[in-house]
Design a protein around this nucleic acid. Structure first.
Length: 386
RNA sequence: GGGGAGGCGCCAAAGUUGGAGAGUUGGGGCGGACUGUAAAUCCGUUGGCUAAGCCUUAGGGGGUUCGAUUCCCUCCCUCCCCA
């Protein structure tokens, strides 16, 4: 089995657990820590592939097994030659398994030991997902990094439920791994498989889960089931605790996180990879992240503000347009607003992790992180009033 | 010039056989939320005040009535048809 993926460590921070490194895939190198834009349905909403590559400088993006299976379906994906060719994206792709939909579509699914039965949110039709079936779909998609099928538990989550769920996720992980080893990539490039640590906010369950998954052996390890409503400190504690049980030479991926400050805090706790819908979804809802804090672009106070959104940002929006213009586009419900804002937020996230990486390598990470978190987590206006 | 229809909140409409009205629906405005995307979505708010209450308010003015947004008179305005 020639599928092992390694995280090559370049530098470890001395004051924190932050790491800088890289991961090589057949579609190119990923420098870590990294943020991965979410492209659920084979598109990062409102951003072209050209822009993702040349302006955001995304190194890897996400796709979603559940959504791509429903539409366009594996037959089309296979005829297209896989998702890379279908969407004309030649850099790495990671696919989530549908485990998040177990959480987010909880009213439309039924869980059993064998798998999860979904009623399609599109047409109500029934579909049964098992670890084996999900691996098959991810082969059809051709993602560079495939995620195992897991159960993302909600918060709060009773201990007994969390334990049973974690145990099932571990049993599913075994089946995922077997299905992975018993199948082959379809398009000539290597595919890798990540396990997902569960256990809600219970440390003993997180430890068990991590140890069990490491025993099974994966190309990388994700921390799942967080950022589902628990306090940020609880998320940080859980991550901090969990990463101690994960191998140093494998990538660590915190699923679904998060706000810019969440990302920096979790880099400090030993995470290498992040994804989140927040930069794109919030962009479409007129909420912009900047190096000085966040901005609600629909607010009337920007009506006559002819300054740039973020003077420290090098994106197309910030180099060419004013807050007043962007606000006008949002108020007028113009599509360009969504495009410019999405581009900006993604560029901000990529710039943020790039800076984090530079500071880790320079040995100045912790100080920079602490200062940056204070600034970027505030509303820009209240920052100015300070 | 003649005939007809109609004017309610910031806007556009609904409704009211005379009694629930600061009150319906949509839009707009203002504010908030969003974390492995059922999301260009969702939520709150949107007359005033000395604020568990009170006041003002249905084109303007007047009248009938215990009671009028509703009925009558008059003036103003908008739209449609005819000349």
């Amino acid at each position: 089995m020639d599928c092992l993926l390694e995280l090559v460590l370049e530098k470890k921070d001395t004051n924190s657990k932050a790491r800088a490194g890289y991961i090589d895939t057949d579609h190119g190198r990923i420098q870590t820590p990294i943020f991965m834009p979410v492209g659920t349905q084979g598109t990062v909403k409102a951003v072209t592939q050209k822009s993702l590559k040349e302006e955001v400088e995304a190194q890897i993006i996400l796709g979603n097994t559940y959504h791509l299976y429903l539409r366009p379906g594996t037959e089309i994906l296979e005829k297209a030659g896989g998702l890379h060719k279908f969407m004309n994206w030649d850099k790495p792709i990671l696919t989530d398994s549908g485990g998040f939909q177990v959480y987010s579509l909880s009213e439309l699914r039924k869980l059993t030991e064998e798998g999860v039965k979904f009623r399609s949110h599109l047409d109500g039709s029934e579909h049964f997902f098992t670890p084996e079936k999900v691996i098959g779909i991810e082969r059809s998609i051709g993602s560079d990094i495939m995620m195992v099928l897991d159960e993302c538990t909600p918060y709060p989550c009773e201990y007994d439920y969390a334990k049973n769920s974690k145990d099932m996720t571990t049993r599913w992980a075994v089946r995922n791994k077997e299905a992975f080893e018993n199948s082959e990539p379809l398009y000539g490039h290597k595919q890798h498989l990540f396990g997902i640590v569960q256990g809600s906010v219970y440390k003993d369950l997180r430890e068990q889960s991590a140890r069990e998954l490491v025993d099974i052996g994966f190309d990388g390890y994700a921390v799942g089931g967080l950022a589902v409503g628990e306090p940020a400190e609880m998320m940080y504690d859980t991550v901090d605790f969990t990463t101690d049980f994960l191998p140093e030479d494998k990538p660590r991926y915190l699923m679904g996180v998060g706000r810019p400050e969440n990302i920096l805090e979790n880099i400090a706790r030993g995470i290498d990879m992040f994804d989140c819908v927040m930069p794109t979804r919030n962009a479409r809802n007129a909420y912009l992240f900047t190096s000085r804090g966040y901005l609600a672009m629909r607010n009337a106070r920007h009506k006559e503000d002819f300054t740039t959104v973020d003077p420290e940002c090098d994106c197309y929006l910030c180099k060419n347009f004013t807050k007043a213009y962007l606000r006008h586009l949002f108020i007028a419900n113009e599509i360009l607003a969504l495009q410019l804002a999405s581009l900006h937020n993604l560029r901000f996230y990529l710039n943020l992790v790039t800076k984090a990486r530079e500071h880790i390598i320079a040995g100045t990470f912790t100080e920079w992180k602490n200062e940056t978190v204070k600034i970027i987590s505030k509303n820009v206006n209240s920052t100015q009033e300070d």
